[in-house]
Write a protein that binds this DNA or RNA. Structure first.
Length: 457
DNA sequence: TCTGGGGTCCTAGGACCC
DNA sequence: TCTGGGGTCCTAGGACCC
């Protein structure tokens, strides 16, 4: 917690709906709902007009339709437009401080102390906040923001939510706990339905109540991290710094189907699409992953995950697809699947295959679109990036060399040349025959026979 | 027409290592 | 000559956020 209120939290008001109303005059003053408009969609954003009828974020779209009157606009999101507006806002914020932490598409912290030239008195930061909201409205064509300014991220964020829309809330140093005490615990970041219910059963309703709970109780109820976190937040004890950039830790894609799927071939095709999307995004972002996870939501909403971790990171959509497929093999899908997802974690910002690169200085050649006949299809991904030159391939296989292929198992090089390598496999894991040809930069093809691999696994 | 999609962080148990 | 004990990695699940 700082000695003066110098952290601002900027939150755009009902941003998706606001952008739609800005871009289409006929929507202004009317209830607007943005979200999944078909099938099993939920509300992303409800305009303030729609909130008067009870529509809320995360509400099933079907319920929002029941609540809102005729004349309400139900719109599918236009993320490109929101991203563009977001970029404009972030540029505005960078005009007020070099230290801006973008939290999401519609939210950011601004460190006013880092600018060096702002008056950090209460009157001073109130004036700065006013100039920020005016600049955002001017630059975006009328999208409004609410701003909280305080001595910590916590107080800034709580403040920005207190007088929405278009409100400015400055909390002076020393007044933090009196701001928090009367608020329901659910206003604290990290207190969701489960935590709120546990607290309610203990008679804890407000942040002031929570601040009186001894730490050992909280540790007992919530474990170490969450327990100490709640204890500190309730006391306005928050020294998290504003940080400009954070590295991505995972990349994922998932899809909820309009009707539950049971057809195995259809599920595999959907999984291939998702996996190729993830691989394409990894490659486009210059990332590679060691762990691939699939997520399966059954008809009854029970959800499981299955994951596998390799020694070497990969960014190859074909390999991500193969690993995801293999994970799905062990899942019973006969009762109906509501959602499938594919994720990539344990990210590295390089591809380990670099270590096996051929002659130094040789540029990575374009990866062949397909190798031999048995490669699974990966060509349908709509946002798959064009092949990025992410890594030099492990080319240069010599006849007789021991190799391993992630799908076909251990083998040895039969012959190579012209960008292709033919491998003779030894076990039964290679239906229908023992010889296969691959691109010689196929990342599923690795030297040797690492011990973690087991034939048929 | 109950319950999206993209993430982050934490916990707990088992394997494995020294 | 029954049961150690930390540290790290992996897997699965869950809470939470926007």
């Amino acid at each position: 917690m700082r000695g003066e209120a110098s952290i601002a939290h900027v939150d755009l008001d009902a941003m998706f709906a606001a952008v739609e109303q800005r871009d289409k005059v006929s929507l202004r003053g009317r209830p607007v709902i943005v979200g999944g408009v078909a099938g099993r969609g939920v509300v992303s954003t409800a305009s303030y007009e729609a909130r008067r009828f009870g529509a809320r974020s995360a509400m099933p779209m079907a319920e929002a339709r029941r609540r809102c009157p005729a004349g309400t606009a139900f719109l599918a999101p236009r993320f490109a437009a929101y991203r563009k507006t977001s970029d404009v806002v972030m540029a505005v914020l960078h005009g007020f401080s070099p230290l801006v932490e973008q939290v999401s598409i519609d939210e950011a912290y601004v460190d006013l102390a880092a600018a060096g030239d702002h008056d950090l008195s209460v009157d001073g930061v109130t004036a700065v906040a006013g100039r920020i909201t005016a600049a955002i409205a001017a630059a975006t064509g009328g999208v409004t923001a609410s701003i909280g300014v305080g001595t910590s991220k916590l107080v800034a964020k709580i403040g920005s939510d207190l007088h929405k829309p278009a409100g400015i809330t400055v909390t002076a140093a020393g007044r933090e706990r009196e701001l928090l005490a009367p608020l329901p615990v659910t206003r604290l970041p990290g207190v969701g339905p489960a935590t709120a219910e546990r607290l309610r059963r203990a008679g804890v309703g407000t942040v002031g109540d929570l601040a009186r709970v001894p730490l050992p109780e909280l540790l007992d109820w919530f474990g170490h991290a969450h327990g100490t976190g709640l204890h500190r937040l309730a006391r306005a004890d928050d020294d998290r710094p504003v940080v400009s950039e954070r590295e991505a830790k995972s990349v994922s894609a998932e899809e909820t189907f309009d009707v539950d799927l049971t057809d195995r071939a259809r599920l595999e095709a959907e999984l291939d699409l998702l996996a190729a999307r993830v691989g394409g995004r990894l490659r486009a972002g210059g990332l590679s992953a060691r762990t691939v996870t699939i997520k399966v939501r059954h008809h009854d909403f029970t959800t499981i995950t299955r994951s596998t971790t390799r020694d070497q990171p990969t960014d190859d959509p074909r390999l991500v697809t193969q690993l995801a497929r293999r994970l799905l093999t062990g899942v019973d899908t006969s009762a109906g699947i509501r959602l499938l997802g594919v994720g990539a974690t344990t990210l590295a910002d390089f591809v380990q295959d670099d270590l096996f690169a051929a002659a130094p200085g040789s540029a990575a050649p374009d990866r062949p679109a397909a190798t031999a006949a048995e490669e699974p299809p990966t060509d349908q991904a709509p946002d798959q990036a064009p092949a990025a030159p992410a890594a030099a391939p492990p080319a240069g296989w010599r006849p007789g060399q021991d190799v391993r292929h992630d799908v076909h198992g251990p083998g040895w090089v039969w012959g190579s040349g012209r960008g292709l390598v033919t491998v003779r496999f030894e076990g039964p894991a290679t239906p229908p025959g023992p010889v296969r040809t691959f691109a010689d930069d196929d990342p599923a093809l690795c030297p040797g026979d690492p011990p973690e691999w087991a034939p048929g696994g």
